[in-house]
Amino acid sequence: MTTLTPSLIGPELAALGDFDAQACMNCGICTAICPLSTDVLPRRLMRYAALGMAERVRQEEEAVFSCLLCRSCEENCPAGVHITENVRLLRRWLLEHPRRLN
């Protein structure tokens, strides 16, 4: 089951900076061009964040912190999404919102 957390894309990420993953058109150019060649970076990660899938973002912590911030994706993004800054803000969110134990 997937849990959506509306506050993730609302107040939590918006409070950290100019998070604009919602502008993503899901075309996949970013992932095709990513030097790390993973299926998560950066398109799926952007979708998880844009949909408010907080737990999925937490599960992909390694992808978030292994991103090179090289901006190759951003340079070729037809929607002009600030992908690198979004990843950096997700790092900040992960550091400030560690997983709570049930």
Binding site: P35, F65, S66, L68, S72
Partner: peptide
Amino acid sequence: GRQTWCCGGPAESLYPAKAAAV
């Protein structure tokens, strides 16, 4: 130029194997 390929260095401090592959 603007389409340059990363050296992998930014991943070095946390994921050295990934940095080496890039």
